[in-house]
Structures are given as structure tokens and as C-alpha cells.
């Protein structure tokens, strides 16, 4: 269990494992309701989605088994490839911004100054607000004709922008909205990581005459890597299946410019009722999330 990176630590309870093994089996049944629920609502539907992905199934028509044809069709579907590209563009851009800015804000918060509580309260607001509210808020601010964002641009002498209505800008703008919402979360994780670091390496570095930048680059950053990877894993899960804010603000538009894989799967399934094909997209997306998360966990384990 010590090698399990994603899950709970077994180290602290290992001593108890042996002692409890003597009367094991007694409390297991307390798990049954939760497991039965998970089986019925998660495991079984997952299997069913996989089965559906192997069928030609339009809602209202009979399903026809077509073994892998949906997956073959994915390979020739330009919207799928565009969606894959959009998903990764949004993912990398947002993740990079959030890790860099989150580290900066985390370091800032780590200086024990007055106003910590107020700052933390402000920081948690964006990611505890419903995504619908975030979407509505930014729709109004970024409105191309009457929004405050374009007014600010005009004050700076810049031309107005179409923001979410611009095919070229929509994904970066969504990345910025997500960065606004989740950088504070990354920052709070970073603070937690910083406060768990030992002081000695820093003392040694400063005694050796390291500058603040050198101390950060060669002492803080390497020691902070597991924390940053934890943040990266959590953000990856959310970013790769990005749905809410896009569906609320653009529904994947303009055109298909912000159609991520999750949006594409949803639209094929619930707007076109093309259930077999939508299931294939969802399974592909699930595989993608699993591969990225497992790779990041491997990386963290190797540190």
C-alpha cells in the first residue's frame, strides 16, 4: 500500500492492520450499502456505456451490434479530432497558467502577514461558487457590445474584442476564466505543501549565500514538486473533462471552436440522441483521463 500514490496512505495504519486482522470480517458489512450503490449507479452504467459504444443505437430505434464501427468512425471524424485538439489546448494552457500563478500566490500567502484569514476567504470564493454563476458572471462582463471588459480595453486605448464570440479567442478566454476560478485552489494546496517543508535546506542555502531566486529555484521548487503534481492531477481530471463553463457560455461554439470531447459527447448523446456513437466518444475520453492521471501518478511516485 505504500506504493499507492492515488489513494490513502497505508503507512500510518500498518501497525493496526496486523492487530485488526485477528478479528477481521466483522465490520465489512457496513460497506455493503455504499458498494451496492456504487455498483448500481457507477460500475454497471460504466459497463453499459461500453456496451452501447459497440452498438449502432439511435434513441427510439432498436440497437444493432456493430463491433467497433463507432470507434473506427471516430478516427475519420474531423469534429472528434478537433475536439481532441481543443481539449488538450485548453488543458495545457489552463494547467500551465494555474500551476505558475498558483505557485506565485502560494508563496505570497506563505509569508505570515496580517490579513491571512481575509485573503484565504477571498481566495476560496471562486472555486466554491457554482459554475453556472461563474458562467453568467463572465458572460455579462465579456459581452462584446456592453460588457465591462471591452470598456476596460477602450480605456487602455485598445480595440474591443469579441471574447467568447470569437472562434480564435474562445478557448484561451475559457482557459482564463478557469484560471481565475482555480488558481486560488492551486495556491492553497501550494501553501499546504510549503508549510510541510523542513527549514534546514533553506538555512543551508542562505548560509551558502544563495539569492532568493536561487533558493526558490534550487531548494523550494524541487521540494515542492510532489505538491505541484498533486495539484496537477486534480486539475487534470477537471480540465480534461471540462464541461460546465463551456456549455453554459458557448455550448461549444462559435461553430465548433470550443467543442471539447466532453461537450461533443454530450451533444451527440443528448441533442442528437446518437447514443452508440456518443458512448464511444465518452469511453475514449475516459481512457484519455485515465492515461494522463496514471502517467502523472507514476511521475509523482518516481520523485
Amino acid at each position: 500500500m505504500g506504493t499507492m500514490a492515488f489513494g490513502r496512505s497505508g503507512a500510518s495504519t500498518a501497525g493496526w492492520t496486523r492487530r485488526r486482522a485477528r478479528f477481521a470480517g466483522t465490520a465489512h458489512w457496513l460497506l455493503v450499502p455504499a458498494l451496492a450503490f456504487t455498483l448500481a449507479l457507477v460500475v454497471f452504467p460504466f459497463g453499459y456505456t461500453f456496451w452501447l459504444s459497440l452498438n449502432d443505437y439511435q434513441f427510439g430505434h432498436a440497437a444493432r451490434f456493430n463491433f467497433g464501427e463507432n470507434y473506427a468512425a471516430l478516427l475519420h471524424d474531423a469534429v472528434f479530432w478537433q475536439g481532441l485538439g481543443t481539449t488538450f489546448f485548453l488543458y495545457f494552457l489552463s494547467l500551465a497558467l494555474q500551476l505558475v500563478l498558483g505557485t506565485y500566490v502560494g508563496l505570497l500567502l506563505n509569508r505570515r502577514l496580517h490579513g491571512q484569514t481575509v485573503a484565504r476567504t477571498i481566495l476560496m470564493s471562486p472555486f466554491m461558487m457554482p459554475s453556472v454563476v461563474i458562467g453568467m458572471m463572465w458572460l455579462v462582463i465579456l459581452d462584446p457590445s456592453l460588457g465591462a471588459a471591452n470598456y476596460i480595453l477602450s480605456l487602455l486605448g485598445l480595440p474591443p474584442s469579441q471574447w467568447l464570440a470569437s472562434p480564435g479567442l474562445v478557448v484561451p478566454v475559457i482557459a482564463l476564466i478557469d484560471t481565475w476560478q482555480w488558481t486560488p485552489f492551486v495556491a492553497l494546496i501550494v501553501v499546504g505543501g510549503l508549510q510541510a517543508l523542513p527549514i534546514e535546506p533553506f538555512e543551508a542555502a542562505f548560509i551558502d549565500g544563495a539569492t532568493r531566486w536561487q533558493a526558490f529555484r534550487y531548494v523550494t521548487l524541487p521540494m515542492l514538486r510532489p505538491t505541484l503534481l498533486t495539484a496537477a492531477i486534480l486539475r487534470s481530471v477537471d480540465l480534461l473533462r471540462f464541461f460546465d463553463i463551456i456549455y453554459i457560455t458557448t455550448q461549444g461554439g462559435p461553430g465548433n471552436a470550443s467543442t471539447t470531447l466532453n461537450i461533443y459527447a454530450y451533444r451527440r448523446g443528448f441533442e442528437f440522441f446518437d447514443i452508440g456513437y456518443a458512448s464511444a466518444i465518452m469511453i475514449a475520453l475516459m481512457a484519455l483521463v485515465a492515461i494522463v492521471v496514471l502517467a502523472l501518478m507514476r511521475l509523482r511516485r518516481s520523485l
Binding site: 500500500m1 497505508g10 493496526w16 477481521a24 465489512h28 460497506l31 458498494l35 456505456t49
Partner: peptide, 30 residues
Amino acid sequence: FAVSYQAITWPATLTLAARMAPGTLFLLPW
């Protein structure tokens, strides 16, 4: 309580995997 008391991990990991999966994945069968 059972996971903690019996020191078994997989049920907790299973529910975690459920939380990590894209919601759309269960939505069609549901």
C-alpha cells in the same frame, strides 16, 4: 468506518474513481 477499521483500501479507491470519471459517462445509461 469499515474502510478505516478493517484497513481495506479498494472500496475507497473505487468510489474515488467514480468521482474522477466524466459525469457524461454514466448519464446515458441513467
